[in-house]
Every structure is written in C-alpha cells, then in structure tokens.
Amino acid sequence: MSFGTALKMCRNQKGISQTELSHLSGYSISYLSLLEKDKRDPNLSTIEKICAALNIPVSIFIFLASNKNDLKGISDELAKQLSLTALQLMEADSANANLST
C-alpha cells in the first residue's frame, strides 16, 4: 500500500470527506488531494496531525501505509488479517462515535 492509499482508505472508513478532513487537520483540500494521489510526501508532523484529525493512532496508520518491503518477516496473510482488524476497529470506533452524538 502507499501513504495516499492508506489516507483515502482511512478517511473513507471514518466517513470523512476531504473538506471535513481539511477543516479538522488544517491542511487545504488541494494538499490532501495531492497526498491521496501520492504526489506529495508528508513529514512526520503532517502525518501526526492527519492521524489526530482522523482519530487514528499513527502506528496503525503507518502499518496500513506499509508496503511488502516494510513488512519483511510478516506473512502476507498475517498482514492482511492485521489490516482488516485495524479497519474493523476503526469502523467500530466510528459507529460508537456516531451513537454518542
């Protein structure tokens, strides 16, 4: 996967538009679009702000954005299971947040 793919996937999983993420993170819609298309490489502070806006731990996001070379020693099946579990937890978190509002 890539940073952009992970960003778009997490944003969609949380049900947040680019416009809403722009307001939450302080980054422009055009910059977020460039990130999602992998046309810009964010620094760590940018990743931290975006993860805070999405209410996702940075470590989980980095894992989701990792490619096969980054995950040496972890089987493809385990990586898929971990990714699926992370996405399900985000979905459950979003559902719980919607119930409390």
Score class of each variant (00 low, 15 high):
residue 14 K to Q: 13
residue 81 Q to M: 10
residue 67 N to S: 11
residue 12 N to Y: 07
residue 72 K to L: 07
residue 41 D to T: 15
residue 16 I to S: 06
residue 17 S to P: 06
residue 67 N to F: 07
residue 13 Q to A: 14
residue 70 D to P: 04
residue 77 E to S: 12
residue 15 G to Q: 04
residue 49 K to D: 02
residue 13 Q to P: 04
residue 45 S to I: 12
residue 50 I to Y: 02
residue 18 Q to F: 11
residue 21 L to F: 05
residue 43 N to Y: 11
residue 28 S to A: 11
residue 32 L to R: 02
residue 64 L to G: 08
residue 52 A to F: 10
residue 15 G to D: 05
residue 36 E to M: 06
residue 76 D to R: 07
residue 79 A to L: 02
residue 61 F to S: 03
residue 41 D to A: 13
residue 22 S to Y: 07
residue 68 K to Q: 13
residue 16 I to Y: 03
residue 66 S to G: 07
residue 51 C to K: 04
residue 21 L to H: 09
residue 21 L to M: 04
residue 47 I to K: 01
residue 42 P to A: 13
residue 19 T to S: 12
residue 23 H to M: 15
residue 76 D to V: 08
residue 20 E to W: 04
residue 21 L to P: 08
residue 47 I to C: 03
residue 47 I to R: 01
residue 29 I to S: 02
residue 16 I to G: 07
residue 67 N to I: 06
residue 66 S to V: 03
residue 47 I to Y: 05
residue 53 A to P: 05
residue 45 S to V: 11
residue 58 V to A: 01
residue 30 S to P: 01
residue 79 A to D: 12
residue 57 P to A: 07
residue 25 S to E: 04
residue 15 G to P: 04
residue 44 L to N: 09
residue 43 N to F: 05
residue 53 A to V: 08
residue 45 S to Y: 01
residue 84 L to M: 15
residue 46 T to L: 01
residue 68 K to C: 01
residue 84 L to H: 14
residue 21 L to Y: 02
residue 75 S to L: 00
residue 32 L to W: 08
residue 63 F to Q: 11
residue 57 P to Q: 05
residue 39 K to F: 03
residue 53 A to H: 06
residue 31 Y to H: 14
residue 61 F to V: 03
residue 17 S to H: 09
residue 35 L to A: 11
residue 13 Q to V: 07
residue 82 L to R: 12
residue 76 D to Q: 08
residue 23 H to K: 15
residue 55 N to R: 12
residue 14 K to A: 14
residue 57 P to M: 10
residue 64 L to A: 08
residue 76 D to I: 10
residue 68 K to A: 13
residue 53 A to T: 09
residue 37 K to I: 00
residue 62 I to S: 02
residue 75 S to G: 15
residue 74 I to R: 04
residue 14 K to R: 15
residue 55 N to M: 06
residue 72 K to I: 13
residue 46 T to E: 10
residue 54 L to P: 11
residue 82 L to S: 13
residue 37 K to Q: 15
residue 48 E to M: 08
residue 14 K to P: 06
residue 28 S to T: 14
residue 55 N to F: 02
residue 69 N to E: 11
residue 46 T to P: 02
residue 59 S to E: 13
residue 42 P to L: 00
residue 85 T to H: 13
residue 12 N to D: 14
residue 85 T to G: 12
residue 15 G to E: 04
residue 53 A to E: 05
residue 33 S to T: 13
residue 67 N to V: 08
residue 81 Q to E: 15
residue 54 L to W: 03
residue 28 S to V: 05
residue 73 G to K: 07
residue 22 S to W: 02
residue 14 K to D: 06
residue 23 H to T: 15
residue 35 L to I: 00
residue 51 C to G: 09
residue 37 K to R: 13
residue 27 Y to L: 12
residue 19 T to F: 11
residue 40 R to E: 09
residue 30 S to Y: 04
residue 70 D to W: 04
residue 56 I to C: 07
residue 59 S to Y: 05
residue 14 K to H: 09
residue 23 H to E: 13
residue 60 I to C: 00
residue 41 D to C: 12
residue 19 T to G: 14
residue 45 S to H: 12
residue 15 G to R: 08
residue 48 E to C: 05
residue 69 N to F: 06
residue 43 N to P: 00
residue 60 I to M: 01
residue 25 S to D: 07
residue 28 S to Y: 00
residue 27 Y to Q: 01
residue 35 L to F: 04
residue 59 S to V: 12
residue 84 L to K: 15
residue 12 N to L: 11
residue 18 Q to L: 14
residue 27 Y to C: 02
residue 26 G to S: 09
residue 83 S to N: 09
residue 77 E to N: 10
residue 17 S to M: 10
residue 56 I to W: 02
residue 58 V to Y: 00
